[in-house]
């Protein structure tokens, strides 16, 4: 009980600080700390799914994205002090678009996690075993209420297109901070990258039975992508090649096609035929969301690999 109160108080204080923090940078740090404390709160309330989502999306990737936007803002202000407003509003827009998408995603998780003895929850617990899934949240997200999830993936897509539309082609050279020239980074990347990949795939796979799933996995992948971009192993490209574009839409597309396909063979719309479809959809979602986040971070239409 004491811990509950403590966490709640902490959250209130942090949210307040993040919103009215004296300097922007302090506000950002407060925001990230807020994300972490929220993670702890979810964990304490016994919902590791939400804790994961919050840690990965709320604190991790959003933190990184806000930081890069902050950096760009300062840089733009320094370089073109006369009329920073269009650029400013562009960036603000990108952040806000992103925030909206993320709020939606978190809301999705939050609602799907509402349990207790509510009618819906009771029915779900009776129905879940039929689906072969062990994780009720994945059940809700991919099987029972998959229309929500489908549309949420479309939200991410729309958010990205909106941000892209706002940034435009000339923003292919949106500034990125130079990679820190320290010998530590290469070994760090080399070690972290494979491990992150494995953990991400694990989270995806585990999602059907245990906490985890596409959203968390994609956030982890996005974090990896951010690391690669920051260390200069992956650079921005001026245009999105078809692979990038395909990657962006594959989540939505696969989801829709599976749903429509079921309709064609006479099953209800968006009925999920089996656990393999869950994996297929989740994998596609992971790719799309992860790629979207990395592209937003890089601020470029496409990505190109570089060997250092």
């Amino acid at each position: 009980m004491v811990i509950d109160v403590f966490l709640a108080l902490g959250l209130v204080v942090l949210a307040w600080q993040a919103l009215i923090g004296g300097s922007l940078f302090r506000g950002i740090v407060m925001f990230i700390v807020f994300g972490m404390v929220l993670t702890l709160a979810w964990a304490w309330l016994g919902s590791p799914d939400l804790a994961m989502a919050e840690a990965a999306i709320g604190a991790g990737v959003t933190g990184a994205l806000i930081m890069i936007a902050y950096w760009r803002l300062r840089r733009i202000n320094a370089v073109e002090p006369r009329d920073p407003s269009p650029a400013r509003s562009r960036l603000a827009l990108v952040i806000a678009v992103l925030a909206t998408g993320l709020v939606g995603a978190i809301g999705l998780a939050a609602v799907s996690a509402l349990t207790g003895d509510a009618t819906a929850a009771r029915v779900m617990n009776e129905t879940l075993p039929d689906t072969g899934l062990g994780n009720p949240i994945t059940g809700v997200l991919i099987v029972f209420r998959n229309l929500d999830t489908l549309l949420e993936v479309a939200v991410v897509l729309a958010a990205y297109i909106a941000a892209r539309a706002a940034l435009g082609r000339e923003s292919a050279d949106l500034p990125l901070p130079p990679a820190p020239d320290t010998p530590l980074l290469t070994p760090l990347v080399v070690t972290l990258a494979p491990l992150t990949m494995v953990v991400a795939i694990y989270l995806l796979k585990a999602g059907s039975q245990y906490p985890g799933g596409a959203f968390q996995a994609s956030a982890l992948l996005a974090a990896l992508g951010v690391l690669l971009v920051l260390t200069g192993r992956v650079g921005p490209a001026a245009a999105a090649n078809w692979l990038t574009r395909a990657g962006l839409v594959i989540g939505t597309l696969v989801f829709c096609l599976v749903g429509l396909g079921m309709l064609v063979i006479g099953a209800p719309l968006l009925a999920i035929p089996g656990i393999w479809a869950v994996y297929l959809i989740e994998a596609a979602m992971m790719i799309s969301i992860g790629l979207t986040l990395v592209l937003l971070f890089a601020g470029a239409p496409g990505l190109s690999g570089k060997r250092s």
């Binding site: 827009l93 209420r145 549309l151 958010a159 297109i161 539309a165 706002a166």
Partner: peptide
Amino acid sequence: LFNLFVTLELVTLAAIGLLVVDRKP
């Protein structure tokens, strides 16, 4: 009710994207 929320989000974001396709300040 929740699905309505998600669709409303999608509507809003798509609308905002359309709002800036011309990139006018």
